[in-house]
């Protein structure tokens, strides 16, 4: 079966590992990758795309060295290869202007504030992954255990 990736981006390792821990219930069906910078995420996405793998979801922090989360997510949104990638901005500090940019330019699918609730992050991730899988025509039957049932029901009705 095709590999579907979730990429988490945060420059603080302990935050990154905490995000990954919250997503652990998805680990059997998705490959979860960790990146410590926007550049690393872009490099990894190129690689995964070249290997023919799917990137379904990017969860990024905003305030990071060199390139911010909003910049990263904007570039992903503008890249024809990754137009369908779902995007969550997870941030402890974003100005009003940053937030507007995140919505208008990066077309983020969800905005979460730190400190986040693990259950909520998992639930939103499941919803977005469900949307991705259906929109890409991927097999959802085998992944029912980790998909969001109401979202799936709405989409395949």
């Amino acid at each position: 079966m095709e590999t579907i990736n979730i990429i988490c981006v945060d420059d603080q390792r302990e935050v990154l590992s905490a995000v990954v821990r919250d997503l652990a219930p998805l680990a059997d069906h998705f490959n979860i990758e960790e990146c410590e910078s926007a550049a690393e995420c872009e490099e990894l996405m190129d690689e995964l795309d070249a290997d023919g793998e799917h990137v379904a979801l990017v969860i990024s922090d905003h305030v990071m060295p060199l390139k911010t989360g909003v910049q990263l997510l904007t570039e992903i949104a503008d890249d024809p290869r990754f137009r369908e990638v779902k995007k969550i901005l997870l941030t402890g500090l974003a100005t009003h202007a940053d937030t507007i940019k995140a919505v208008n330019q990066a077309h983020i699918d969800h905005y979460l504030e730190k400190a986040w609730d693990g259950e909520e992050l998992l639930h939103i991730s499941k919803q977005l992954l469900t949307e991705y899988i259906v929109s890409q025509g991927l097999d959802y039957q085998s992944r029912l255990a980790v998909l969001d049932a109401p979202t799936l029901y709405k989409l395949i009705q």
Binding site: V63, M64, T68, G92, L93
Partner: peptide
Amino acid sequence: SSHCRSVD
């Protein structure tokens, strides 16, 4: 540090 994270 939390403010200057976008700078190296």
